[in-house]
């Protein structure tokens, strides 16, 4: 009898594990779904009178990041987002949403514009990552990302980031040093792609589903880790099945979040934004009296050990 129970409980554990893996991998697929609405679709559905503003004012216009001015429910806002495109032509035109330093510098100059004219900023995050090309590297990709994060952290205007597809690594984070980070139900946000992680740690990209599970990249998991503030619902099966409906959910989340943010004093908002990122991480500080644990979510009942 005891053996039987043990056997069943092991089996149940295995099944739960397999379901977690399946769910994580499925979410990765939906987040990358070809027909999923992109930044441009959300701009069309949410922003009235959008005026696109191009160029980094240095050397180029990177089409992997789009930005401009428009009206959100009567409020003028600056919108900046990665643009992936849906058809192959579009995807190639927008470099699959992989920005070069020019793209991050375009974002920075739009931040300055917003700051000067006291306009709230909405960003949309949807990128496999920053573009890994020689010219991008040698054009200062690393510093461009670092500067974009720093300049975003310094803003005194409200900043809301919404992860709408793939939040890939530093290239995604560069547009997400925000007061609040929202994330669609089927979007992912991760330090590395499951394929990249599998290639390094499993030494085989075929283990991507395992890596996807281990990285915990889904919205509900990131909410538990305090990395995002809100999960935005999507139509059944994903946003591509009903873009209008998906956009309405995003609209409501943006409206409520913006209302919350404009009520805060600009200096306090900026200080809270810094504090938000300072607190992110998990560590303990050992002492005789016991461990102080920082921002540690409870993902399972298993007690946390430290090292």
């Amino acid at each position: 009898m005891g053996e039987e129970i043990e056997r069943l409980s092991t089996r149940l554990k295995t099944l739960r594990h397999e379901k977690r893996r399946h769910d994580a991998w499925l979410t990765v697929q939906i987040a990358r779904e070809k027909d999923r609405p992109r930044t441009r679709e959300y701009i069309a559905l949410l922003i009235e009178g959008f005026e696109e503003l191009k160029g980094d004012r240095l050397r180029a216009d990177d089409r992997a990041i789009v930005g401009g001015l428009g009206w959100f429910e009567g409020q003028a806002v600056v919108v900046i987002g990665h643009q992936k495109g849906r058809t192959l032509d579009e995807q190639q035109m927008h470099n699959f949403g992989m920005a070069r330093p020019e793209g991050y510098r375009k974002a920075q100059r739009l931040f300055r514009l917003a700051e000067r004219h006291k306009l709230p900023i909405f960003t949309f995050v949807d990128t496999p990552g920053a573009y890994p090309g020689i010219a991008a590297e040698e054009g200062g990709q690393a510093r461009a990302i670092a500067e974009t994060m720093r300049n975003m952290a310094r803003l005194s205007v409200p900043v809301i980031a919404t992860v709408i597809g793939e939040g890939g690594s530093g290239g995604a984070l560069a547009l997400a040093v925000a007061d609040r980070v929202l994330m669609q139900e089927n979007a992912t946000y991760s330090v590395i792609s499951p394929e990249g992680c599998a290639a390094i740690l499993w030494r085989d990209a075929e283990f991507a589903p395992q890596a996807a599970e281990a990285l915990r990249p889904t919205a509900s998991q990131l909410l538990a880790l305090n990395v995002i503030e809100r999960v935005v619902k999507e139509p059944r099966g994903g946003a591509q099945n009903n873009p209008e409906n998906a956009a309405n959910e995003v609209r409501q989340a943006l409206r409520e979040t913006l209302a919350e943010l404009v009520a805060i004093d600009p200096a306090a908002r900026r200080a809270q934004r810094r504090e938000r990122f300072r607190k992110l991480g998990a560590f303990s500080e050992g002492s005789v009296a016991g461990a102080v644990i920082n921002a540690l979510p409870s993902l399972s009942p298993r007690p946390q050990r430290d090292f």
Partner: peptide, 15 residues
């Protein structure tokens, strides 16, 4: 990588 998204967040934190 083993700290997942929290390691990515250290980029913003150290910035």
């Amino acid at each position: 990588m083993q700290e997942g998204i929290l390691s990515l967040m250290q980029m913003a934190k150290t910035t």
